[in-house]
Simulated assay, not measured.
Amino acid sequence: MSIGNSPSADRPSVGQAIQQARIDARLTVDEVSATTRIRVPIVHAIEQDDFSRCGGDVYARGHVRTLAKAVGLDPDELVAQYDAEHGGRPAPTPAAALFEAERIRPEPSRPNWTAAMIAAIVAVVGFVGFTLFNDGDESARTPVAQEDPSPEPTDEADPAKPADPKPEPEPSESDSAIAAAPADKVTVKLVAEGGNSWISAEDHNGRLLHEGVLKDGDSKTFTDDKRIDLVLGNAGAVTLFVNGKEVDKVGESGQVQRVSYTRGDPEQG
């Protein structure tokens, strides 16, 4: 179905075009949502030309392009119509300004009173033992004339003394992640590096695990028995570790990407 050659007065809006094409294709909103991974309320809103739930023009254009493909429309023509109806193609903007209210704040750490009390008891017992040992040693000690000065310590190593063992290198972050990833599950870790990104994660049943902004420097980890489905609002700012292995760059800055991962070696969905 093409909408680019229709007169502007008679041409349906973006939402109307998507809705009519879906009906012509005999598809329900639930079926379109399952195919595109766009939630049902957002599909309903777009068909009513309400793009406020998309999170901004960048995400709205991505949803329009995805829905156009699902219902058989030309995605380039429909996105061009959306740009014409909404002031032109937007410049990429960080996701922080759109979702500032969803700032993720780490919980304050609590003091470990048990460890502090144990350390204090050990210090008191050590001081008492040291005092008793010094008193007994002073009473048994008799003055003697010092004949030869004690030899000065040298830097030469004592051959009878074993050399200090070399410290083993600590495992890197990716090595630790590989060791910690269970083999019978799919584990996905997202780290925001160089910017913020709106993210959405669902399990293999379509249940929403998380939706919101991943701030620069923060991370999120998701686990499921079969599959994890992700939507990355700013793919270029997100680094992925899937089943303990770092995944190559999945997108550019400002680009919306949808990926899925299962158990075993990571494969982009």
Rank of each mutant, 00 (worst) to 15 (best):
residue 2 S to D: 15
residue 7 P to Q: 09
residue 8 S to D: 07
residue 13 S to C: 01
residue 13 S to E: 03
residue 13 S to P: 06
residue 16 Q to W: 01
residue 18 I to T: 03
residue 19 Q to N: 02
residue 19 Q to V: 01
residue 22 R to P: 04
residue 30 D to V: 13
residue 33 S to E: 09
residue 34 A to Y: 02
residue 38 I to D: 01
residue 39 R to Y: 08
residue 41 P to Y: 11
residue 47 E to V: 08
residue 47 E to M: 07
residue 50 D to C: 11
residue 53 R to C: 10
residue 53 R to T: 15
residue 54 C to H: 03
residue 55 G to D: 07
residue 57 D to F: 06
residue 58 V to P: 04
residue 59 Y to D: 07
residue 60 A to T: 02
residue 63 H to T: 07
residue 64 V to I: 15
residue 66 T to V: 12
residue 67 L to T: 00
residue 68 A to F: 08
residue 69 K to I: 10
residue 69 K to G: 06
residue 69 K to N: 10
residue 70 A to G: 06
residue 75 P to H: 06
residue 77 E to N: 08
residue 82 Y to R: 04
residue 87 G to S: 09
residue 88 G to D: 06
residue 88 G to Y: 04
residue 88 G to T: 08
residue 89 R to C: 11
residue 89 R to I: 07
residue 94 P to S: 14
residue 104 I to A: 11
residue 105 R to W: 10
residue 106 P to H: 13
residue 106 P to F: 11
residue 106 P to T: 06
residue 107 E to L: 05
residue 107 E to R: 11
residue 112 N to V: 02
residue 115 A to N: 14
residue 118 I to F: 10
residue 119 A to V: 13
residue 121 I to L: 13
residue 122 V to C: 10
residue 124 V to Y: 00
residue 125 V to G: 06
residue 128 V to C: 03
residue 134 N to P: 01
residue 136 G to L: 10
residue 137 D to Q: 11
residue 137 D to P: 02
residue 140 A to P: 02
residue 142 T to L: 11
residue 145 A to M: 10
residue 145 A to W: 08
residue 148 D to P: 00
residue 150 S to A: 15
residue 151 P to F: 01
residue 152 E to Q: 10
residue 152 E to M: 01
residue 154 T to S: 03
residue 154 T to M: 03
residue 157 A to I: 08
residue 158 D to Q: 05
residue 159 P to M: 00
residue 161 K to I: 14
residue 161 K to L: 12
residue 162 P to Q: 00
residue 163 A to D: 12
residue 167 P to W: 09
residue 170 E to D: 12
residue 174 S to Q: 10
residue 180 A to P: 04
residue 182 P to R: 03
residue 185 K to W: 05
residue 190 L to Q: 07
residue 191 V to A: 09
residue 193 E to M: 07
residue 194 G to N: 07
residue 195 G to H: 04
residue 195 G to F: 02
residue 195 G to D: 04
residue 196 N to V: 01
residue 196 N to P: 04
residue 196 N to K: 00
residue 197 S to N: 07
residue 198 W to K: 11
residue 200 S to L: 13
residue 204 H to Y: 07
residue 205 N to T: 15
residue 205 N to Q: 13
residue 211 E to Y: 05
residue 214 L to K: 10
residue 214 L to Y: 09
residue 215 K to Q: 12
residue 215 K to Y: 12
residue 215 K to S: 14
residue 223 T to W: 04
residue 224 D to M: 04
residue 225 D to R: 15
residue 228 I to K: 05
residue 230 L to M: 15
residue 233 G to W: 05
residue 234 N to E: 13
residue 234 N to W: 01
residue 235 A to C: 13
residue 236 G to P: 03
residue 237 A to P: 00
residue 238 V to L: 05
residue 239 T to S: 03
residue 243 N to I: 06
residue 244 G to A: 01
residue 245 K to L: 06
residue 245 K to P: 00
residue 246 E to D: 01
residue 246 E to V: 04
residue 247 V to Y: 01
residue 247 V to P: 02
residue 251 G to A: 07
residue 260 S to K: 08
residue 260 S to N: 08
residue 264 G to A: 04
residue 266 P to S: 06
residue 267 E to L: 08
